[in-house]
Design a binder for these strands. Sequence first.
DNA 1: ACAGCTATTTAGAACCATTATAAACTGTAA
DNA 2: TTACAGTTTATAATGGTTCTAAATAGCTGT
Lengths: 132, 132
Amino acid sequence: MKYIEKLRNSGLRPTKQRLQICEVLFNTERTFHFTINDLERKIKDKIDNKISLATIYNTVHAFEKKGYLKQIPINSNQIYFDTNITDHHHFYNLKDGKLIDLENSDVGPINIKRKIDGKKIKSIEVLVKLED
Amino acid sequence: MKYIEKLRNSGLRPTKQRLQICEVLFNTERTFHFTINDLERKIKDKIDNKISLATIYNTVHAFEKKGYLKQIPINSNQIYFDTNITDHHHFYNLKDGKLIDLENSDVGPINIKRKIDGKKIKSIEVLVKLED
DNA sequence: ACAGCTATTTAGAACCATTATAAACTGTAA
DNA sequence: TTACAGTTTATAATGGTTCTAAATAGCTGT
Ligand SMILES: [Mn+2]
Ligand SMILES: [Mn+2]
Ligand SMILES: [Zn+2]
Ligand SMILES: [Zn+2]
C-alpha cells in the first residue's frame, strides 16, 4: 500500500480505516474541498465496510495536524477542508456555496505593509466572494 | 435618539431593544469585532433591562442584512461579526484568537487575474494568520 | 507465535452555537 | 383607538462537533 509509509513516518499507525480514508482523500486526479459530511458520503460510496463518524473526525483532524489537509477560512456551519495544501486562495460562490481554487499566480503578490511586533506571518489567505 | 431614523429608513421598527443594541454596537469610539457571546456580555454590562438571546441573534442578523454589520470569514465554532463595514482585512492571532484590522492601505492592491464567467466579485477579503 | 502495551476505533451520549416555534407584546398607520 | 403586522421572548429543536469508555487492533520485545 502506498500510504503505509506516509502514515508510519508521521507517527500514525496505518490502520485499515486510515488507509481507506487516504485512498478517498489523496488517490485522486485533482485536489478537492470537502466537509466532514461530504467525506462521509464519499467513503460510503467507495468502500464496502463501515467507518464510524468518530473515526472520520479523528482521522481528518490527525491528518490536518500532520499537514496533509488544511482548513479553509470561511463562514459556514460546517468546517471546509482542502486536500490542496499548497499556498493558494479561493473563490467562494455565494449562490451554491462551492469553492474554486485560485492559484497564487491568479492573485498578484500580496505585500502586508503593517507589522505586529513579536509575531510573524504564518499564512496569507484571500477569499473572493462571487455573486451573479 | 440618534438611531431611530437609521432604523426607520431601513424598514426596521425602532424598538427599545434595537435602539439599545445600536448604542452598544455603534455608539463607540472605535469599531470592533465580536461574537454573539461577546455582545451578550457587553449588553448585560451596559443596560439594566434584559434582552433575550433570541432578540440579540435576530437583531444582529437584521443589521447584517441591512449592511450595518459584516461577518468575518474565519474558522471558529462561533461567528465573528465586525462593526467596521468598510472594505478591509484582518490579522488573526492564532495564540489568543483575536482579530486586528488591516486597512486596505496596509495591503497592496489585489488584482484577481482569473475570471469566472457569469459571476462578479462581491468582495475580496484577506486573512493573515499570525504566530509567535 | 505470543504476550503486553498503547493507539485506535466505535456507538452513543454530551455539548453548545444557532435556529425554529408560537404565544405575548408593541409600533404604526388608519 | 383599533387593527394588524412586526417584534420579542422563553423554550424547544437542530445539527455539527467533541467526549466517553469499552472493544479492538497494531506494534515491540521475547
Ligand atoms: Mn459502499
Ligand atoms: Mn446591567
Ligand atoms: Zn483550495
Ligand atoms: Zn475588522
